[in-house]
Design a protein around this nucleic acid. Structure first.
Lengths: 231, 231
DNA sequence: TAGATTGTTAATCGATTAACAATC
DNA sequence: TAGATTGTTAATCGATTAACAATC
């Protein structure tokens, strides 16, 4: 009787709640209502209550949620109650930035190793994290029981890398390569494609209506000139 | 009689179609069906046809879509038919990686400048793009009529930076800072928060059902022990 | 004409919002 | 008890999928 899997939208909101709770605890706030959480997060109070209630009754009617208690529960729901071992594949600029950030600022994860195929980089380290030859990736994954990988290799190598790591037990992949990659059933893939992100942003940067009107007008004209040429 | 704005999901898919078309044209493919586009993109053929039909009738029944023609139309819809000027604020590791990537690999945008407040960085350049003092940001935005900004500053400076650039006409912001920021009506904000991305990924990296069952079991136990202590 | 594939309308699905009873 | 806020059920909304007529 497995209940339906939690929707992706809910899973994307949980870390937002977590961050807010981390801040509230830093300010010694003990109790927070869904209404206040709404103001901090931008999500509606109803949605927040519904999201949380799916996992359990964590609040107190008439009062709100205890920040420490709720934080502990969300940590356990996401699976962040223990540090997660991760690897980063691709020691280019983006890989370096992500390694550095996660090694120094992200207390919930533990970057075990970075991989690359450039002999110049192998043997070096980023913020103390060693760079290994990509050939050694299987051994390290098994040794540290790694389930999570971040991929920052060029588009043309992405699928190859994925095929190389999945057999060793990787279960979740954050892919920054601007390429569509295939993963077997049971492996979770999240594409964080910054080019696509930027292009959809550009859509909103100039007057939408005018642009679309122009495209539609052009289609009319093309249709008209085609009918004319058929005469 | 402005039609309803295009949904965000559609706008996120357009750049995916664009990338596929770029590749197809590179391979000299002239015609593509929605079914083939589906195989390349992972979106359903029905969804692709519906997405495109919203903007116009770009295809030919019985045949499919002309790759060059469709590419041109999508470029115009997104607003990529002319190079878009952008700025990047924050010359840390992530800012540097994004600047370098967009300056060298992304032919649709033109990185005009990078900004920082560190005197050590000001005056330097990244892949030929100059780093200016953040104080000069308003002038540059006006001079180059910039509408798009990428923010890679620390969380505590993000709101300040946004407040500094919006009055000069920035209309779309891609925010990498792990902070919630407020923008006025009419300014589009897209949060690309990599910590949140990674945490929701971790959710999927271990057996979901077991973890949730444990949380629910714990709640039962806590409830039971509370009732007991009331006796 | 027959076969293929688009563009569009209708049906379904899922997620968000609204409403309110439960209860601190 | 009165006031407040949760947890949950019902209503709404929007997006995806299915079906099919239009048409190349």
């Amino acid at each position: 009787m497995a209940s339906r899997p939690v929707s992706k939208s809910v899973v994307k909101r949980l870390p937002v709640y977590l961050r807010i709770l981390d801040n509230l605890i830093r300010w010694d706030v003990e109790i927070i209502s869904s209404k206040e959480l709404s103001a901090e997060s931008g999500f509606s109070a109803e949605q927040i209550r519904k999201d949380l209630a799916y996992f359990g009754a964590f609040g107190t009617r008439g009062t709100g949620y205890n920040t420490h208690f709720l934080r502990e529960k969300i940590l356990k729901i996401i699976g962040l109650d223990k540090k997660t071992n991760i690897i980063i594949i691709g020691a280019g600029h983006l890989g370096t930035a992500l390694t550095r950030y996660n090694a120094t600022k992200n207390s919930y994860v533990n970057v075990v190793a970075v991989f690359d195929r450039d002999p110049q980089l192998i043997g070096q380290n980023i913020a103390g994290i060693p760079i290994y030859d990509i050939k050694e990736v299987g051994g390290i994954i098994e040794q540290y029981n790694i389930k999570v990988a971040i991929i920052t290799v060029p588009a043309e190598s992405a699928q190859e890398v994925v095929d190389q790591i999945v057999p060793y037990g990787i279960k979740a992949i954050l892919n920054f390569a601007p390429a569509r990659i295939e993963v077997p059933e049971g492996v979770h893939l999240d594409n964080a494609d910054l080019t696509i992100e930027l292009q959809s942003l550009i859509y909103y940067s100039s007057a939408e209506e005018e642009r679309l009107a122009r495209v539609r007008r052009e289609m009319e004209e093309e249709k008209a000139s085609k009918m004319l040429s058929l005469d």
